[in-house]
Design a protein around this nucleic acid. Structure first.
Lengths: 342, 342
DNA sequence: AAAGGGAACTTAACCGAGAAAGTTGCCATT
DNA sequence: AATGGCAACTTTCTCGGTTAAGTTCCCTTT
């Protein structure tokens, strides 16, 4: 089956290619009658514009790029990216834009990928996640003048537009809640230490310790896997002055921590309170259900996609930094006042 | 920053566009010396082929399409797709192909999407998952002659190449194992009933009951969410003759089932054995760790991507149906002989 | 020395759209 | 009746590559 072109339509309608192009693009220069006829023929033979030809004539690629630089084994388990992608998709597909997804093994590859996508005109813009300190991607994207939106911030984003949530508020609220319950020593099982948002959370966690005058010195960094989450939990619970509450940077580690507590003979929440970041169905499926820091990830992705489309369309206005609502604590059965014996 | 074109290279090198094209594509017609010079200039000014221009001249789009037709809330929690995608990515990015991902709301949209991708020449081929009975996508893809590989089968695939695993063997092995442990009544919490692989598993499950002379009549279909998994488990455990073992179609439902058992005062595995399909880290993070039917999902995706690339290149040979190794049972703490009181 | 052959190029057409510029033909003016 | 103006087209060029079909020029052969 050959793909129909405007030349085919022109031949059938007995007009020139140019007339067909005008008719199909709602531009003046063809009579309503001819336009109707051309549209009918286009519909009949199932014509769609060849995106390559359009792109060659300077049109948009109608695709945006997302490079994900995390090990495959984490991608599979962390709902975050899939939810982010599904939120982005909702906005993009409504705008007729596709999503080019590529999993990259390292930072070098990611940079090369942006260069290639840009040079090949494959994408109209990119969405950048997992911002690191002095992230080389920021400079590259600025230099290429490739429209880009960072999911994260608000620092380290250079001049790029970004969508961010104030994790510090969430951390402070959560620590405050645990302190109100009576906890005095709170641990934190953090994510990848070179991610900027991990550092923000670390800083907020330490600061909250000072604010509420409790011990928040116990922080262990991990790679987000359940394995490392379990290991970190074991380490924390094996210290002489063990914490009575632990905050985890994702829910899979929180669940792992729950199991470790159980394995060590501790009862949650009596002997240990557990809070997980990001509230997937997983949290409600384990016993006790996990208290979690909930946010609307699809909405987060949708907002980033919207902003990127705005940037591409040049209708950004001044909204370079868009703040979305921060994660809110959803208390469930895994948090309670510490037992007196602790 | 203007993107350099071969015309720029030609001007600098003092040769024609044609010569540059020959040089850059390793085709005869230019002297080694000139070729070197052209390549050096291309490198220097950072030239990359404009993919649109190439595509216009009949070249490949260097992208393959994947439409995912599942509700967003399931996507986030089911590791299957992300793992599949990461396996596909490994093969595709090595071949210089990108992945166009789109989440679609319904079957109609998915069909329209394939038509559009095909007409717009955006993709060289497609990967189809979640095959249904009399799936209209099969006919459409055959009609469009769009290279496509189905993840699933081996029935209902029409003339399309496919990559499949024999779920029936896995079901039979698992039921056999439970029977060997002494179970006489085994339940099954199935996935979406209109998916072909759910039907295959259903049929194999029923057949295994006959083979081993045990009761496998208890089957409840769900939408893969933990909620429905919990609900189905509650229903099964509330029947007069409740099963002593339940097999779940994904691990999130298995975990939900574990919680329900706990909530109903049953001890796993003493009072109830639990087996989950697909072995994500989640299974090892709960207590007791879940016995699971393990398969290498990234490898599954990689094999599908390889086959698609072969089909696109026209080097398929006769490998229209590629069987990958079926899931194998990984026994862990959630399965044991049933207690006599049951 | 003329002819043949092939390497090393150049020229120009082409892919399928978009868009500027050019061409009709008709109607209303004056 | 000549002119202007405009709608409704057609022609042609453009995007950035690929590629078939020339064109040179040099070297070998007889």
């Amino acid at each position: 089956m050959r793909r129909p072109t405007i030349a085919d339509i022109a031949r059938r309608a007995g007009v020139s290619k140019g007339a067909v192009s005008y008719a199909l693009n709602d531009r003046p220069g063809v009579s309503p009658h001819t336009r109707q006829r051309i549209l009918a023929i286009a519909e009949e033979i199932g014509w769609r514009p060849n995106s390559a030809a359009r792109a060659l004539s300077g049109a948009a690629a109608n695709a945006i790029g997302l490079a994900i630089h995390r090990p495959a084994r984490i991608l599979g388990i962390e709902p975050f990216f899939m939810e982010l992608v599904s939120g982005m998709e909702a906005v993009l597909s409504a705008a007729g834009s596709a999503l080019m997804l590529q999993v990259v093994a390292d930072a070098e590859t990611e940079l090369a990928l942006y260069r290639r996508w840009w040079a090949e005109r494959r994408i109209d813009g990119a969405i950048v996640t997992d911002l690191r300190a002095e992230d080389p991607r920021v400079g590259l994207l600025e230099q290429l003048a490739l429209p880009a939106v960072i999911v994260g911030g608000p620092t380290g984003v250079g001049s790029l537009p970004h969508v961010w949530a104030d994790d510090a508020v969430t951390v402070t609220e959560t620590v405050g809640y645990l302190v109100a319950l009576g906890h005095k020593r709170i641990g934190r099982v953090a994510g990848l230490p070179d991610l900027l948002h991990t550092r923000h959370r670390d800083a907020a966690f330490r600061a909250a310790g000072t604010t509420y005058a409790v011990d928040t010195s116990l922080v262990i960094s991990t790679d987000y896997t359940g394995d490392e989450g379990a290991h970190a939990t074991r380490a924390m619970l094996s210290t002489a002055a063990r914490p009575t509450a632990i905050i985890y940077d994702n829910d899979i580690m929180a669940v792992a921590g729950l199991s470790v507590a159980h394995e060590m003979g501790l009862v949650v929440p009596r002997d240990l309170s557990i809070v997980g970041w990001d509230d997937s169905p997983l949290c409600q499926v384990v016993r006790p259900p996990l208290t979690a820091m909930t946010r609307d990830i699809p909405a987060y992705g949708a907002r980033a996609a919207e902003l990127l489309l705005d940037v591409i369309a040049g209708t950004t206005g001044k909204a370079l930094g868009v703040e979305v609502s921060h994660s809110r604590l959803t208390p469930r059965g895994s948090t309670a006042p510490p037992s007196l014996s602790g």
